[in-house]
Design a protein around this nucleic acid. Structure first.
Lengths: 191, 191
DNA sequence: TAGGTTATCTACCGTTTGGTAGATAGCGCT
DNA sequence: AGCGCTATCTACCAAACGGTAGATAACCTA
């Protein structure tokens, strides 16, 4: 049997992954501000100090969570598609994101709250979100380039609408996220 | 002369207004989380305890600031217009908000950050923002009712786009808020 | 099985912060 | 002038929280 694990020792990589996974769930449920170092640790059955051995500060943990989630998301949605720069592909990719987000509301809320907090240039995740926005827009623009008359402005439009729709959906779950998106997309991709 | 005011005593209403004004500026500059009770008080030349005599908690102060700002904004933008329920009026009102927001970026950021924080149902301003969204949408819908084929969905669209555009503008001031809005409005109000 | 590496723990610290209790003093009224 | 109301202050508290230091024990290798 496991010899009365008053202490459970794991190899580095494994423990890190366990922590990140637990932290993601916790943050998604209660926001980042709402979760204390001790709570993160307790979720893995360890203590603050134990956790800090792996992530040297609370902020470092946050960044790690974000980056991990980002990688997972990106590969899962875009990964399998050919990067064909046409309207149909662009719409497919965006619809993929919409559907994925629809299914993980609390995680979307996490991103929303964090990205707002991070408007403050002093916030630990400020640079992260700034970069993320720029890259996302550049990527989208590449998809629009070949067929849209104003790819730059259109990319801004599309991302703004999606961000805003998400925000309103979080505030009021009476909103039909998917329907509103599809209607908007019909118009947008008709041009 | 004023007799060496180690203590400055003001009538209730006057002091309240002074506090709200100072608090608004402070929050707009550094966010709500970034300002401590003591800082709010110091800005009016008083102490925490003195301030708490007027607002019984930090949260109460926050709500008061929001409500005051809301009232001021609403009267300043909508106040002078006839509530004619046609497209032109709707567009004029919305454009009024856009221009006003454009001119007070830090205040917009305040609202953005707060409304994101307030997604948490336990947040002191949760109800405030929920109500505000609903009322805003209802008001907008009334303007669209007479001429738009789908007033409900359109209201959601418009507010989502504006929220999102604002958010992206806050994240990246390279975005031309006004131009993007006008272009969108051209399409939206053409229908 | 001995020994070293290191993952984990116990105990503690210092600061920040929201809030309270009771004293004090400025203003209006008679 | 005196008195009461209350706006304001001084002093204090308690708890939360992020982080550190040094002890301890689990696993790997020889």
């Amino acid at each position: 049997m496991t010899p009365a694990p008053g202490r459970r020792r794991l190899p580095l990589a494994e423990r890190r992954e366990e922590i990140l996974q637990a932290a993601t769930e916790l943050i998604a449920a209660s926001g980042f501000k709402g979760v204390t170092l001790e709570a993160f640790a307790a979720a893995c059955g360890m203590t603050k100090a134990g956790l800090l051995h792996h992530f040297h500060s609370r902020e470092e943990l946050l960044i790690a969570v974000l980056e991990r989630r980002d990688t997972l998301d990106l590969t899962s949605v875009v990964g399998t598609l050919e990067p064909a720069p046409d309207a149909a592909t662009a719409r497919a990719v965006m619809s993929g994101f919409v559907r994925r987000n629809l299914a993980q509301r609390s995680l979307v809320q996490l991103y929303t709250v964090l990205s707002a907090e991070a408007l403050d240039p002093a916030h630990p995740a400020h640079a992260y979100f700034r970069t993320r926005l720029r890259e996302g827009r550049a990527m989208l623009e590449r998809y629009l380039l070949a067929w849209h008359p104003h790819p730059g402005a259109a990319a801004v439009d599309l991302l703004a609408f999606l961000d805003g729709l998400q925000l309103n959906w979080l505030r009021d779950d009476g909103i039909d996220f998917l329907a509103q998106w599809e209607a908007f997309a019909d118009r947008f991709f008709a041009a």
